[in-house]
Structure formats: structure tokens, C-alpha cells
């Protein structure tokens, strides 16, 4: 195994009752990858991300983090989660805390750093996403785009090895999509490892290093963006892309 492989998923299966939502997923991520997962609604994209950071526990299969099975090794679950950030469609900021506190709480309670350090790290990433002026605001006082940028700063403040994004712009008004995608583009350029579930095809085409097309709980096709968008092999991929381009 290459030393810079962060994540390796083998034969991952996830069922909710009788409903097999993920069927035998194989997937791996190297440092610096920007992987976009595309596919129609209900194909299991969110479930895959949620299994990756164990918000759902897989029914079978293994998830290896740097070669260690996260279900079996001594590596603590919370320690693993602190290394894999997550950005949600619905932002999920902590409503009782200010912007600054949102970005500090993980640093103080999970990374166990003091408040001075936490504040410096939080400020660094809030500046990066253009939200440093809003440190005293509460989430309900922000627009959707601002909330999502704070959520990204909160994930960055953990200084994670990779960040998972689950449709980060789907809940946003169209005029706010740009500001969030710009932040994500910057992160990608700086070498952050990212897995992004998205319907923003332009972003997938221009920013990703690899595109994964999911269909009905399976990875139907994957490859570099040029290949997936220009010469898709799988009929389902063609169909899906045709629908997107026409709309």
C-alpha cells in the first residue's frame, strides 16, 4: 500500500432494514485527492459519506484509515473523527454559540488545546473563509452562504487530514453558491484532501482530481473528470449527465 493513502474502503455494505443502500463499495483516497461524488438523489451518496466518518455504522465491509481498520483498532473513534472533517448540507452550526465559539469548541474539547491556541487557529481559518469580521455573530444572524463558510472554518480549525462535504451548496440561494464554491476551490488548490458530494457539475469538472458516479448503491463509474464528462463509458452515467446538461 502506498504510504500516502489516507482511506481505503473494501466491500462496504450498508442496509437500513431490508433496504440495501450501499452494495459492495470499493473506494480509496490519497493525500491531495479532490474526489467529487455525483449521482441521482437516493443513490447512496450521503450514506457513503456518513459511513466514512461513522455517523452510520456499516453493515459489513471494512474502512481502513492509514491501514488501520477503524472498527477494530485501538484508534479511538473520536480521534479518527477529529481527523476527518464534515460539512453538511444544512450547515449544522451550534446555535447557542458565536461564530468564534463554533470554531473553537472542537479545538478545545477534542484536540485539547488551550483557549489561546484555539482562538488563533479559529481566527486563521475564519479569515481564510472571509468570516473573521463576524466572530461575535450568532448563526441565526447570518445568511446561508455565511453559515456554510463558518461551517467550513469549523472543520478546518480541527486541522483535519481530509474533509467530507455533503452537498454543501444545495441549501443555498443561487447567489450564495459562488462564495462557498470559491472557498472550496481555494482549499482544493492548497492541497486539502476532499470528498465532495455535489450537483455542481462545473465544480466537479474544473476542480476535482477524480469523479465518482454512484448509481443505486454502487459505484457505476469513476475516473478523471475529463474522461467522465467527455467520454463516459457507463450508460447510466451518460443518462445522468445528459439530464444535467439539458437542464
Amino acid at each position: 500500500m502506498e504510504t500516502n493513502t489516507i482511506l481505503e474502503i473494501n466491500h462496504l455494505v450498508k442496509s437500513f432494514g431490508d433496504n440495501e443502500v450501499l452494495k459492495d463499495i470499493d473506494f480509496s483516497t490519497k493525500k491531495g485527492d479532490v474526489i467529487c461524488i455525483i449521482g441521482s438523489s437516493g443513490s447512496g451518496k450521503s450514506t457513503l459519506l456518513r459511513c466514512i466518518n461513522m455517523l452510520e455504522s456499516p453493515t459489513s465491509g471494512e474502512i481502513l484509515h492509514k491501514g488501520n481498520n477503524i472498527n477494530e483498532t485501538a484508534l479511538k473513534l473520536n480521534e479518527y473523527r477529529s481527523k476527518v472533517g464534515m460539512v453538511f448540507q444544512s450547515f449544522n452550526l451550534f446555535n447557542n454559540m458565536t461564530v468564534l465559539e463554533n470554531c473553537m469548541i472542537g479545538v478545545t474539547t477534542v484536540r485539547k488545546k488551550d483557549r489561546v491556541y484555539a482562538r488563533i487557529v479559529a481566527m486563521r481559518y475564519l479569515k481564510k473563509v472571509g468570516m473573521a469580521a463576524y466572530i461575535n455573530a450568532k448563526p441565526h444572524q447570518l445568511s446561508g452562504g455565511q453559515k456554510q463558510r463558518v461551517a467550513i472554518a469549523r472543520a478546518l480549525a480541527m486541522e483535519p487530514e481530509m474533509i467530507l462535504f455533503d452537498e454543501p451548496t444545495s441549501a443555498l440561494d443561487p447567489e450564495m453558491v459562488g462564495e462557498v464554491l470559491t472557498v472550496m476551490k481555494t482549499l482544493a488548490k492548497e492541497g486539502m484532501t476532499m470528498i465532495v458530494v455535489t450537483h455542481e457539475m462545473a465544480f466537479a469538472r474544473d476542480v476535482s482530481t477524480r469523479v465518482v458516479f454512484m448509481d443505486n448503491g454502487l459505484i457505476a463509474e469513476e475516473g478523471p473528470p475529463e474522461q467522465i464528462f467527455a467520454t463516459p463509458q457507463n450508460d447510466r452515467t451518460k443518462e445522468f449527465l445528459a439530464r444535467f446538461i439539458s437542464s
Partner: peptide, 11 residues
Amino acid sequence: GQTEAAKALGM
């Protein structure tokens, strides 16, 4: 959602 976000941070 907030509980999940906290979980995802490792809290």
C-alpha cells in the same frame, strides 16, 4: 444536525 456536527468533530 447539531448533535451530528458535534459527533463529526469527535466530541
